[in-house]
Amino acid sequence: MATYDPHATDEHLVCTACGTQFPVTDRATLATCHICDDPRQFTPPAGQSFTTMAEVRTNHRNVFHSATAGDERLTSIASEPKLAIGQRAILVRTPAGNILWDCLTLIDKETVARIRDLGGLKAIVISHPHYYSSHVEWAAAFDCPVYLRAEDREWTVQQSPRQVFWDGEDVQSVLGKESTALAIRLGGHFPGSQVLLFGGHLLIADTLVTTPAGMGNWATDALGTPRERPVGMNSFAFMWSIPNMIPLSGEEVFAMWAILKHHDFTSTHGAFVGTDITDPNIKQRVLDSMQIQTKFAGWARQDAWKSV
């Protein structure tokens, strides 16, 4: 593997709103970010702006956190202070090698060294275009493939022979069956939006949006008396645009469940550090959340849920 030189991309421009790295150094040639011009994202009130990868490396660092208590196979990686959208990546340690779920803009020598100490990367899998960030550079640094859904290919701003645009089946084994990691295309937020299932953990990014009620603790009341979770509380939302609060249609949500219902899991891990839920009933909570959203959205086909 060729020696990775992060300074080779120091002058590459990075969108300050979404963190996408462009293979461009001349600001006069890059006036706007087409990802942020899409209705699922936004340009901030201050307007479109770009920074450089060198500035990102100077002003931020990547911090590693445990993603779930008692299971060292999942490690969150997040940039501090918050960079662009602020999502995390998750290092998934499988029997067939390490997978990076989602991606960060910041990649530097320290991050590369830390991940190599943990076994390196055999593959990168990205949930949707808002987290494409600098995936081409990450793939080059670890000389590994990066798996993206073919439905979302139009949102890539860089091309690389390491990009693998998988298509067809909604469920794909990552690194072969021995890894036991499955990428599952649910669609919704983007046509190719994916989740990753490994060891009972469902890594959901923004395909399922973890809600405050989902993170809420109703184990006891203020006096310490045990209680049950109130009826009607959702745990997840299903959004076409998260920042602009445009929900998915009932048909789209139902289509997501038609795929997800075939898979079992006991925890979910959202797009941001701390959005982890472990609950043996979490799959039922996903279904309950879908039914709550479609009911209040006025979906006329509520009787369709009776068949699931």
Results as ranks from 00 to 15, higher is better:
I246P: 06
W138M: 02
G214M: 03
R93L: 06
L118D: 11
L148G: 08
R57P: 02
G192W: 01
G216C: 08
V209C: 15
T51H: 00
D26I: 00
Q172F: 00
P247Q: 07
A300P: 06
L196A: 12
A8G: 10
L106H: 08
N98R: 09
L148N: 14
R153N: 07
R57A: 02
S66I: 12
A113Y: 06
S127E: 05
L106R: 14
V209D: 15
A17V: 01
V125W: 05
S134F: 03
L223A: 15
N217D: 15
T94M: 03
H269F: 05
H7G: 11
L148P: 04
F265D: 09
H65S: 08
H130V: 15
V273R: 13
L248K: 04
S173Q: 10
G200S: 09
P6E: 03
A297L: 13
L74D: 04
D152H: 03
D10Q: 09
M290K: 00
I77M: 06
D108I: 01
M245P: 10
F236P: 02
G192H: 06
S133R: 08
P81G: 05
A237H: 15
D102G: 06
S235Q: 12
S307D: 15
V171I: 04
A271W: 02
P81A: 07
H135P: 07
G188M: 11
V231E: 12
W166F: 15
K122I: 04
A150E: 11
F165L: 11
H65Y: 14
D221N: 13
W240Q: 15
M233V: 07
G214F: 02
A183L: 09
A31V: 14
R162F: 05
V174I: 13
A113H: 09
W166K: 07
I90M: 08
T278E: 11
Q158N: 08
S127A: 14
P243A: 05
P243L: 04
D206H: 09
Q194H: 07
A304F: 11
T105Y: 01
P45W: 00
V63K: 14
T111I: 06
H7K: 13
V195F: 05
H7E: 11
G176K: 07
T3D: 12
H65E: 07
R61M: 04
T266Q: 09
K261P: 03
Q163M: 14
G176Q: 04
E11H: 09
Q284E: 12
P129R: 01
I282V: 13
Q302Y: 10
F165T: 09
Q172P: 00
P230E: 00
Q159I: 07
E55K: 13
A139C: 00
R88K: 15
F165I: 12
I35E: 06
T275F: 03
E151M: 12
D303Y: 08
H34S: 14
